[in-house]
Design a protein around this nucleic acid. Sequence first.
DNA 1: CGATGTATTGAGTCGCATCAACCCTAGTGG
DNA 2: CCACTAGGGTTGATGCGACTCAATACATCG
Lengths: 246, 246
Amino acid sequence: MKEYLLSKGSAFPDCGDCPIRRQAICARCSVDELASLDAIKTYRTFAKGEAICYAGQTITHVGTLVTGVAVISQGLEDGRRQIMGILLPGDFVGRPGRLVSQYDIVAASEVVMCRFKIGAFESILAESPALGPRLLEMTLDELDAAREWMLLLGRKSARERIATLLYLIATRSRSLGEVGDQANFTFELPLTRETLADYLGLTIETVSRQFTGLRKDKVIDLKGQRQVKVPDFPKLYAETGDHPDG
Amino acid sequence: MKEYLLSKGSAFPDCGDCPIRRQAICARCSVDELASLDAIKTYRTFAKGEAICYAGQTITHVGTLVTGVAVISQGLEDGRRQIMGILLPGDFVGRPGRLVSQYDIVAASEVVMCRFKIGAFESILAESPALGPRLLEMTLDELDAAREWMLLLGRKSARERIATLLYLIATRSRSLGEVGDQANFTFELPLTRETLADYLGLTIETVSRQFTGLRKDKVIDLKGQRQVKVPDFPKLYAETGDHPDG
DNA sequence: CGATGTATTGAGTCGCATCAACCCTAGTGG
DNA sequence: CCACTAGGGTTGATGCGACTCAATACATCG
């Protein structure tokens, strides 16, 4: 629960140096707009496991996740839990116009956020010609992702769910130019089995079994328990159950 | 596949007469903005079962659903299908900036849409101060709905899913002031068992069984196969599995 | 009246959850 | 250095809930 308030100087004093400048909500801001945001931004670090906000809680800030991974989830009365989204650097947290969070948002690793008081942000949003469209675009992307996940949760088998997630992460980290040639591509899974299970709507035991199943069938290869090697992308894709087109 | 092109005069010549004027994307438009939209709008009717657009298809129009019900869905290679959203009067179809649909959108009843060519709409969107924020607001609401559904699809039992859907519809139609006093509230389910099943991530048989189960336990009462009576709201809510608060 | 689409009910099966034991790794402190 | 502990992961045995397959009922329509 310790709060680290970083001075402007200690994180990214100049938004131009910000590592997520090009993906974040401010991606298309003019110099002036950026200056307005810069003037009201503060950085805050959240420890691994710390809540960024709880469902039902009043929201005071919105902002952008700068480093780390966080998770949006919701629980049922008896403890069952579903993760509805994973927040990565560049993702926006909070929604204008809503003062009470619907979900729990929890840091899955140490997280740094670039935050704005919600009122101040809304004022700037109302003036800025670039912020609104960018926020709309990001929200529509999230909506698409959510809908794709609804198909996974509603209709896919456990094996297909794992394959889908691995294919998704592998494809994205490959396009970001991570290590490995085509036939020997390896990436790291930044999630525990429990997080995986809550994200995929499964139990940790089932997740584990499906991993070993895919390994035995040579669809993937596991180095340690977080390193995943994909020797054959089409083979992995064939396990996702998805339509070849679209 | 027959297309009905209505003249301006035959549907809602004046946007002021439009039944969904207050919920739709144009809800907060000024007189001038409304006039711009009015100038480019055309009405089109889709027959029950007709596709408004298919996944992978190039999109030519966006627009608002005026009357009827449509369904957003996606299929897997072997025919499994998941409905990701239900479109009701006032809902917006299509997203600016995307030229290829990700999903199938199919009319579940006869549907009338108020449509705009996508390019023309985007031009107006870029100019209008009211349209963007309204679209953002609607998209955020859809995202919330999608996330709530992810919890249902990932973690709820069949009975909880049915109860959740019935509670949702009952609550909303009650707030719209439909028939029946508190203890005798009745509404109509506008969906077939198959649509229900695809929406809830179940099979039609399971849906049917859960309906009779809830009826036997006196949680609901069925008149015919579409009329649902809710004698006791808290009792229905208790079946949803949801957290009492939030 | 048959025909077709929609809904219910039953019997049997299977996939995933549950419960439980065990393994592995990293961190801690004696 | 090693015993101890705790968190995360794997594997096995068992049971249940939802799916599958199949028969029957009901409704609407020509």
